[in-house]
Design a protein around this nucleic acid. Structure first.
Length: 514
RNA sequence: GCGAAAGUAGCUCAGCUGGUAGAGCGCGACCUUGCCAAGGUCGAGGUCGCGGGUUCGAACCCCGUCUUUCGCUCCA
């Protein structure tokens, strides 16, 4: 199966069974935005629970928060998002290459500067020892013209950027006769600004001062609450703050289903450590996070680390956990050593001391941070990617089955009366009644029993409980296993025990402790 | 964002040189059915992505637009 076909199957299966729908589909959809359906939200919630329990409940020194999507605009000044991600971009229509408009102009200025240098070199040769460079620069007609030109370009560019006047910026590029280095043509698109962050207005007046951003990452909500959390929970360093929440990025190209969306959900933890300890904890969390993934049993070979060579402005080490999706190995989670960059930045911009007094070291410091950040939607796609299978059976038939780990499955159990008569539906419903508050249970009485088994296979229900005539007499039922397709006759009591064993999340969490 | 292709029922698709829509599966009701899909009867569901244009007449031809897919580009 090719990669595109694989993803296509996942997309259509996800839609057919109510996992994921395209947003606003009846209006032709909204690009790179998706809705989770009834089964999707169940799976998603189960993934969240697995993460939260493993990170927070399993670690005494990790606590949770749920911070707002709106934050003070200075937050994004501090984090670097405002400045670093508002570049004016321009495309050359012939070469299809994209450039930063300001960089193109700066390169043009650099060319003029090199012309000045040439003049200087020439003049040096001519005048020899008598050459006075400062005087030459001020008096030589050609050089003065070049210099004047540079000043003009610079001030016009500055004006355009500050006023966000992109029409004039394009005009400047055209006036200077700047050509694409690749195609050599001057056939440019308009200048556009791709700001990573979505913005909106807060308050009734829509003036500039009330502009507010939708957070592009959840991490900053943790950083700005560092002291609040540390003091109220009496945590000592090292400790972590975990959060699951939505983030928004205005991606230029957002594609590949829920892999890259404009609105998405992150599961992040920021772990605060003493300066100098960061590498130790970076290694610890790399190991723990990989263990968390491998415990799902999708296969060890589906994971690999990708260590970053080129680091972001805030990091001194970074690694991705890549997963082999239907579309190949792609980033699923990032583990970053973020140094003290964020807290120091917030300390400077807020004027509030964001430090910790360490009794061991008998001094205060800005803690270093190790971050683990996983895309919930990508995790969801990872589960679908590995779980969805088309199997050929011994009898020549085939089935579509989602081998979702039982504790993540949307429904844990389907309760099925063998036939829709003789009091079997009533018996089935009374059993369901007893189980429904402990497990996500689904009831189905339509169509033949075989067909119902296949339907449950298709949505990943790990167990089917079939109520037959014998059940009416002795309270036993057959429990059918999704993966092996085998059945066992058990008492209702044994079934409860079996479910506790096979479906509970605590088993897998205990495994992570080893 | 650029280039190319596609869009007909919930899904997969058919629909001739233009003459106002069909199949299979699925879905619903009833019947049948003692354990691994594809039994019977009946039924619901489409202004052919949307908006213009050409034409006596457009699912079909032309233009625009939206969405999707692929390639390029971008990616903390």
């Amino acid at each position: 199966m090719s990669q595109q076909e694989g993803l296509k199957k996942i997309v259509s299966h996800a839609k057919e069974y109510g996992f994921v729908f395209q947003s606003s589909e009846i209006y032709d959809g909204l690009a790179a935005v998706y809705d989770y359906g009834p089964l999707g939200v169940a799976l998603k919630n189960n993934i969240k629970a697995y993460w939260y329990k493993a990170m927070v409940d399993a670690h005494e020194n990790v606590v949770g928060v749920d911070t707002a999507i709106f934050m003070h605009p200075k937050t994004w000044k501090a984090s670097g998002h405002v400045d670093a991600f508002s570049d004016p971009l321009i495309d050359n229509k012939d070469s299809k290459k994209r450039y930063r408009a300001d960089v193109l102009i700066e390169e043009h200025i650099a060319k003029i500067e090199s012309k000045i240098k040439k003049e200087v070199t020439k003049a040096q040769k001519r005048f020899g020892d008598a050459f006075d460079q400062a005087q030459f620069l001020q008096t030589n007609g050609r050089v003065v013209d070049y210099q004047k030109k540079i000043t003009e370009i610079n001030s016009e560019m500055k004006r355009c950027l500050e006023a966000e006047d992109f029409t004039a910026l394009k005009q400047l590029i055209e006036d200077l006769g700047i050509a694409c280095p690749v195609s050599g043509s001057k056939n440019w698109t308009d200048v556009r600004q791709f700001n990573l962050m979505f913005d909106t207005e807060i308050g009734a007046l829509a003036d500039g001062s009330s502009k507010i951003y939708l957070r592009p990452e959840t991490a900053q909500g943790i950083f700005v609450n560092f002291l609040n959390v540390q003091k109220t929970t009496r945590q000592k360093i090292p400790f972590g703050i975990a959060q699951i929440g939505k983030a928004f990025r205005n991606e230029i190209v957002a594609r590949q289903f829920i892999f890259r969306m404009r609105e998405f959900e992150q599961m992040e933890m920021q772990f605060f450590v003493a300066p100098g300890d960061e590498m130790k904890w970076y290694e610890y969390w790399k190991g723990y996070r990989l263990k968390w993934h491998k415990a799902l049993g999708f296969g060890e070979e589906k994971y690999r680390f990708h260590d970053h060579i080129k680091l972001a402005h805030y990091a001194n080490a970074a690694s991705d956990i890549e997963f082999e999706f239907a579309i190949g190995f792609k980033e699923l989670e990032g583990i970053h050593s973020r140094t003290d960059f964020d807290l120091t930045q917030h300390q400077e911009l807020s004027g509030k001391k964001l430090q910790y007094f360490d009794n061991q070291l008998n001094k205060s410091y800005v803690p270093y941070v190790v971050e683990t950040s996983i895309g919930l939607d990508r995790m969801f796609l990872a589960v679908l990617s590995s779980a969805l299978k088309e199997q050929s059976l011994e009898d020549g038939s085939s089935r579509v089955v989602m081998q979702i780990p039982a504790f993540l499955a949307p429904y844990k159990l389907a309760v099925l009366p063998l036939v829709k008569k003789d009091g079997l539906p009533e018996k089935a419903r009374s059993i369901l009644q007893d189980l429904k508050f402990d497990y996500a249970v689904h009831y189905d009485e339509k169509d033949s029993i075989g067909k119902r088994y296949r339907r449950q296979d298709a949505i990943g229900t790990p167990f089917c409980l079939t109520i037959d005539h014998q059940s009416l007499e002795d309270d036993t039922c057959t429990l059918r296993d999704r993966d092996s397709m085998t059945q066992e006759r058990l008492t209702l009591q044994d079934i409860q025990l079996r479910l506790q064993q096979k479906v509970s999340i605590s088993q897998i969490l205990k495994q992570l402790e080893k």
